[in-house]
Amino acid sequence: MSSAEPTSDQVTRTDRLTPAEITDVLALVRSAGEVDGADPLDEHVLLRLRDPDAPSVHLTARADDGALTGYAHLDTTDPVDGIGVELVVHPGFRRRGTGRALARGVLASATGPLRAWAHGDHPSAAALAVDLGFHRARVLWQLRRPLAAPLAEPRLPDGVVLRAFQPGADDAAWLTLNARAFAEHPEQGRWSADDLRVRLAEPWFDPAGFLLAEESSTGRLLGFHWTKVHERPGAARIGEVYVLGVDPSAHGGGLGKALTTAGLAYLRDRRGLDRVMLYVDDSNTGAVALYQRLGFAHWAAHVNYHLG
């Protein structure tokens, strides 16, 4: 985003992108991610881009020659808590007002509160947010850790065993556990069966890397560590602590630490990775402290801005 002079780019609003437009947006996203060191759109938006039936509003900015210079996505499924906004400008077309033009298009297209993510916490995004009246409401940290560093052996509480997730058989029980573990989380705790289904169908999904902690006497799920591996042409592979959760009834027994180390060992020993990342709210001091004790360090920040 930029506070440069008004751009001559044409901003267009649509409720559905054509396949060619989706290809253009994904190419822009890759270019921005390579330059900025942070993906400009989160996974939720990327999944919606590939789902033609997902209710979304799309804003595209194009130069006179038709080149895609910027893109904004509006998730309109939760107008009460706020319409989700993500915006990206092509690195080759920055500082010429494209971001501001898209932001004005967002304001003209939306009714109700807005929640806009700035991935990487770029100063230009912060400046534009201030100019438009947004306030900084939430910060998501990305932490990283080398996997070459020593890992403690997972020490599970008595009566708890680990096993791999079984698609189809474990879906309902996992969704119930996820909702309990993330009851206060603004996104994760609201996952539906469809949210789970689309991720299980992703090329990166590996059931062996989706670890479940089960009470051996009853079969009740107590926690989980879902890992993910990011693989991109020309980029180093990196693992992710994708989602880690523990049932509130099992807090305080060391299960979260055991699940974390078990997942890290899987990424290192079974997938051959040498580094791992995760995302955590900076306000979640308990989780941040756990991850820091396990050798994670701050890498980047993503900021959520609110308006209204």
Rank of each mutant, 00 (worst) to 15 (best):
L156T: 14
R197A: 15
R115H: 01
E187Y: 00
V139K: 02
R115A: 01
R199K: 07
R180D: 15
A129D: 13
P203R: 04
E153C: 04
A116H: 00
G133N: 03
V130K: 12
A183F: 00
P154I: 11
T218D: 07
L162A: 10
S216A: 15
H135M: 07
S216R: 13
N178E: 09
R163N: 14
E187C: 01
S192A: 08
F205A: 05
A118N: 15
A169D: 09
A126H: 12
A125Y: 07
V160A: 11
T218K: 05
H225E: 10
F224L: 11
W226G: 07
S124T: 14
R163T: 10
E184R: 14
D195I: 00
S124G: 14
L128G: 10
L211M: 04
Q188D: 12
E202M: 00
V139F: 08
L175D: 13
V130S: 12
L140D: 13
A129F: 09
E184V: 13
A164Q: 10
V160T: 12
A193L: 11
L143S: 13
G209F: 09
T218I: 13
A164I: 03
W204H: 07
F205M: 05
S124F: 06
D131Y: 00
R197I: 02
S192D: 12
A201C: 04
L143P: 06
A149H: 00
D131M: 02
F182S: 05
L114N: 02
A152H: 06
A118G: 08
P157L: 07
P157A: 13
A152S: 12
A181P: 08
V160S: 10
L151V: 13
D121W: 03
R220I: 10
R145D: 14
L222W: 10
A116C: 03
R145W: 12
P123N: 06
A125L: 12
G189F: 06
P203G: 06
E184H: 13
R180L: 11
L222S: 11
P154H: 04
A127N: 09
F134K: 02
R190P: 01
W226M: 11
Q166M: 06
R220C: 09
E214I: 14
P113N: 04
L221G: 05
R197M: 04
V161H: 11
D194A: 15
P154S: 01
P150A: 02
L114K: 02
T176N: 05
L156F: 14
L114C: 03
A126K: 09
N178W: 01
A127P: 04
D206Y: 00
G189H: 04
R145P: 13
N178F: 04
Q188R: 02
L212A: 08
D195N: 13
L151F: 09
D131K: 03
F165M: 10
E184A: 11
F224Y: 15
V161F: 11
G219W: 12
A129C: 15
P207L: 00
H225K: 08
D194C: 01
V161D: 15
E215K: 04
P207V: 03
S124C: 05
A118C: 11
K228C: 01
V139L: 07
V161E: 13
R197C: 05
T227H: 03
S124I: 02
A201D: 08
D171S: 02
A173C: 12
D121G: 00
G168W: 08
H135Q: 05
L196N: 02
